[in-house]
């Protein structure tokens, strides 16, 4: 299919705050992105507002503080999705359509049990957790991500490339079941599920602040074994245009100044995938 025919569902809930930038990024690339509330998928709205996952070729769960981050970040959104449209989502994923979660969206995908997806498309209970940052603070800073394995959201990013994308979260420490860390990590590595890892400017796997949350193995983003569900803590939609980067005022006007920043490749990659697959 052609880019202009791709319909992207940018899902929101009370407290979501990155849906506009996410939809903007897709629209800039020519796709038809629609921001809808979860209730529009569960049918608790007027007839003309009702939507179905089948209307779309890509589902995005954007960042924010859904339901106030109460209970655990992403837990309430995940529980509502699972109980109302869990079956539709499983079908959507198994049909190969891409599902992306950014920041709070990553937390939702983990709480839903669709990431890491080791025990099937949607596990009955979460298999891993995104826990409170080691610093016990909300960390908002530019982060550098090394692209280690390709998924459908990173096909245009060369393996080994280091991207600059901002992180902004309080609960982003990827945590594996206690005592079974090596087993789980081994599976993630063997399945090529670790997409992005935090690095420092020299490309080394450094600790804080380059790893902003204390995530195991410096993991910033993982996909499911099939590669069509992808969650990451940093924000590609906050690194779409060059002018969104922290140093853009220092570099504007130079002949090297590029119009776009690294996050654009995330959106371009998934649209390329949908165009070629469907």
């Amino acid at each position: 299919m052609k880019v202009k025919d791709i319909r992207v569902c940018v899902l929101r809930l009370e407290g979501t705050n990155c849906e506009e930038e996410t939809a903007y990024s897709f629209r800039q690339l020519g796709a038809d992105a629609e921001i809808i509330h979860l209730k529009q998928l569960t049918g608790d709205v007027r007839e003309d507002e009702k939507r179905s996952l089948g209307d779309y070729q890509c589902l995005m769960i954007p960042g924010g503080f859904s339901s106030g981050d109460y209970v655990r970040a992403g837990a309430i959104w995940a529980a509502r999705v699972k109980s109302a449209i869990g079956g539709d989502l499983i079908e959507f994923i198994e049909d190969g359509y891409p599902v992306g979660g950014i920041c709070n969206g990553f937390q939702v995908l983990v709480e839903l049990g669709v990431l890491p997806g080791l025990g099937g498309t949607m596990a009955a209970e979460p298999e891993i957790a995104l826990t409170i940052n080691d610093s016990d603070r909300f960390e908002c800073r530019p982060t550098l991500l090394e692209h280690e394995n390709t998924c459908v959201f990173t096909g245009s990013i060369p393996v080994g490339m280091i991207s600059l994308m901002p992180s902004a979260h309080a609960e982003g420490k990827l945590t594996l079941p206690l005592g079974e860390e090596d087993k789980y990590l081994g599976k993630l590595i063997d399945n090529n599920q670790i997409v992005f890892r935090y690095v420092d400017p020299d490309g080394e796997y450094s600790g804080y602040p380059w790893n902003p949350n204390g995530s195991i193995y410096n993991i910033a983003g993982i996909c499911n074994p099939e590669g069509n569900v992808f969650g990451m803590m940093p924000h590609p939609e906050r690194a779409y245009e060059r002018l969104m980067l922290p140093d853009w005022t220092r570099n504007t006007g130079s002949s090297n100044a590029e119009e776009y920043a690294d996050g654009r490749l995330y959106f371009a990659s998934v649209l390329d995938y949908v165009c070629s697959k469907f």
Binding site: V71, A75, A79, S83, E125, P126, A129, T131, T175, L178
Partner: peptide, 10 residues
């Protein structure tokens, strides 16, 4: 607890 209140991993 299983459906919302606790994440059994942590």
């Amino acid at each position: 607890c299983r459906k919302l209140l606790a994440n059994p991993v942590i």
